[in-house]
Simulated scan of single mutants.
Amino acid sequence: MDDREIVIERVIDAPRELVFEAFTEVRHLSHWWGPEGFTTTTRAFEFRAGGVWDFVMHGPDGTDYPEWITWTEITPPERIELLHGEFRDDPNAFASVLTFAAHGAGTHIVMRTVFPTRELRDEAVEKYHAIEGGRQTLGNLAAYVTEIVRRGAEG
């Protein structure tokens, strides 16, 4: 693994189109985005290449974290590329590529994040617990879309 990179993956028991869709609309994202205990307030959202998601993550301890995502490439339902920083043109923004592959009736999602420097990657891991937070975020996504599938099967 590149010393500037974090890779997190998970198999989710839901169709690829639904897992991909969970990234495309605020009504979905607000239910699952972020590590356990975090909530999200969206200030602006436009899911398209060149569009932005301007939001604040609220930590369980009351700390607010301003966030800014610019979608750089979107290939439904296979791939999303983005830049993620604290504000527009953040020089420390990191690039993420999310891939969604059919895995039986489910989805194999891979989140590959590359930081501008090894030091920024190490800071994200050590100070912000980026690996565990990423795993929790995908866990929240899995729980959210699995519940949608379950409710759909019931009614």
Rank of each mutant, 00 (worst) to 15 (best):
L120V: 14
L98I: 06
D122A: 08
L83D: 03
A101K: 04
A143T: 03
T42M: 05
H129Y: 01
F55K: 07
N92I: 08
A142Q: 01
I131A: 13
K127G: 06
F20Q: 01
G155W: 05
N92R: 06
V114H: 10
F94H: 15
G59P: 00
G34T: 11
A14W: 01
I8H: 04
A102G: 02
R10N: 07
E67Q: 13
Y144K: 02
D3T: 11
R118Q: 12
F115K: 12
E46I: 14
H84D: 13
E21P: 11
E67S: 13
K127W: 14
R48L: 05
E78C: 00
E154V: 01
F94N: 12
T24I: 08
I148N: 00
L29R: 06
E73W: 07
W71A: 03
S96I: 15
E123A: 12
W33C: 05
T117H: 03
T99S: 07
I80S: 00
I80T: 05
M57A: 13
E81D: 10
R43W: 04
R48P: 06
F115C: 07
E25L: 06
V110F: 00
F55Q: 15
K127P: 00
H103I: 04
G50Y: 06
I109V: 14
F55V: 10
F20R: 04
H84C: 08
D2P: 11
A143R: 02
T137Y: 02
T99I: 06
R118W: 13
T42N: 14
V26R: 03
P60K: 15
V114P: 06
T117C: 11
R48I: 04
E46N: 15
V110C: 07
I131W: 11
D122E: 13
E154I: 00
V19S: 13
V125H: 13
P91Y: 01
I69L: 10
A93N: 13
V19A: 15
N92Q: 10
V56M: 04
W71G: 00
E86N: 09
V52W: 03
P35H: 11
H108Y: 09
I69T: 07
R4W: 15
T137I: 05
L120Y: 15
R150T: 05
E9D: 12
A95D: 12
R79H: 06
T63G: 08
F23D: 07
R135I: 10
H28Y: 08
D90A: 04
W71Q: 02
G59W: 03
G62Y: 12
E17I: 05
H103Q: 11
E81S: 04
T107W: 09
F38S: 07
F100H: 08
E126R: 15
T75W: 01
R79Y: 03
R88K: 12
T117D: 04
G155T: 10
A95G: 09
R121S: 06
E81M: 11
E123R: 12
I8Y: 01
T113M: 15
T41K: 05
L83I: 02
T40E: 02
G134N: 12
D122C: 04
D122Y: 14
I8M: 05
N140L: 10
G104Q: 06
